[in-house]
Design a protein around this nucleic acid. Structure first.
Lengths: 235, 235
DNA sequence: GCAGATCCTTGATCCAGATCAAGGCGGTTC
DNA sequence: GAACCGCCTTGATCTGGATCAAGGATCTGC
């Protein structure tokens, strides 16, 4: 009998399983297996059989779509408490790789699917999260296809201020915020569908315009949130 | 008591409700309302309250994301038997408009959500479809961000050959297929994130290369499916 | 604190696709 | 059958961002 490891879980209040009662949670825990990955390590490969699903406990992952000739696009970033994996798919469509060291709580796909079907409340919660992810993906389609480089970078900075910096950040109330960018220029370029050089130039432009301050490559202060929002345009 | 209108439904075998037994289906039917829309008419507006969900019975719809200054991107095409709407959202994020005359079987959102929660099998089916839509959206993110104009057009033609032409079409077995393009050049441009002119030029290029034959603007024959697939690159 | 690697910035040039502009082709109306 | 209208094609030009190229900044291990 395994001990109640969920008690120590850093995301137990926010992950999918937060909707379960103690009894149900213990059953699900019985199916789970903890896994640690190092920055740069790949969690699942496109083309492989879909064998596991997981909740992310700590760290950040990227979900990547790629052409056969090696062009890549990050289609999603996975933060702690987010669900990752492809239930009801036999073959993995998108490669998932750790951007930082990370910890996952994994489940065998087939057992996870069975559990979902037997616990409708969790099934429903996953449905709601999947609908949210779909909305996100569609919003980003607009970004990728129709926004200029300047708009893309401004929008990503605002996103990151909220997700990686203070969750409460509102650009409107323009008190400056400082935080560490959670990714390299290269990853930003992969998220936004552009090149490293263009990302760098746009950041330099924002710096010259005194909208942001860059202290070293990774630390940023948003000085004028309103100006940044104006440059981002699309909601 | 309403008559059993589902018996006449053209998509009863393929829509979400196909997983229900007779009794359940009659309950759901009690919540539904048929709606006809004309080509060009908008079914739901971004920004409005999310009041209805629906199964599409006939016709084709587009789901559109737009910036405040009017740039647009089609993020999804909805075909018969597909589900459309935004359950569990209070405000509509994407405008839905008919590309052709269309018929919908609509449900009030809140009653539909309740029904989903009380009929886990349908909830699970919607989850599977939503996961499929998410995969689609992510694949299209790669297309929008990283493929060339030529690759985009070739890929869309193959897609349409399958969805709008013969469902069984396989480009590998290169017997020619003829079908009518289900949309204008303008809509193709909106789907692919480019301009009408570029779409037109790419089609002309495919014609000159004798990969396709265009008989009038709307009828197309794919002569060399393999060549077209080669030009599309990305899976 | 130095060697090497990785990441970032900046400059010069190029090009795919946007934009601007001008007809051409089918349908529809009366 | 003439006039119109929406859609499509083609040509000329422009430009945002990619690509090519060369350092500069930071970090890591020893």
């Amino acid at each position: 009998m395994s001990i109640d490891i969920c008690a120590l879980c850093p995301v137990r209040e926010h992950a999918l399983c937060s909707c379960l009662n103690d009894e149900e949670r213990i059953v699900l825990n019985g199916l789970s297996q903890r896994r640690r990955v190092m920055a740069g390590e790949t969690v699942m490969w496109a083309g492989d059989e879909s064998r596991i699903c997981a909740n992310l406990q700590s760290g950040v992952l990227k979900v990547v779509a790629a052409t056969t000739d090696g062009r890549e696009q990050i289609v999603s970033l996975v933060y702690p408490a987010d669900f990752v994996g492809e239930p009801y798919a036999t073959e993995i469509a998108f490669t998932v790789t750790a951007l930082s060291d990370a910890e996952l709580c994994t489940f065998p796909r087939l057992l996870f699917e069975r559990f979902l079907e037997e616990h409708a409340r969790m099934g429903n919660l996953l449905l709601q999260r999947t609908l949210g992810a779909l909305k996100d993906a569609r919003a980003r389609m607009l970004t990728l296809a129709r926004l200029s480089a300047g708009e893309k970078v401004a929008g990503l900075l605002l996103d990151m201020a909220v997700r990686a910096g203070r969750h409460s950040y509102r650009p409107d109330q323009s008190e400056p915020v400082t935080f560490d960018l959670p990714m390299t220029r290269g990853h930003m370029a992969d998220v936004l569908g552009m090149t490293i050089e263009t990302v760098s130039r746009q950041l330099t432009k924002l710096k010259s315009a005194e909208v942001v301050v860059l202290s070293g490559a990774r630390t940023i202060t948003i000085v004028d949130g309103n100006a940044l929002k104006k440059r981002a345009m699309a909601a």
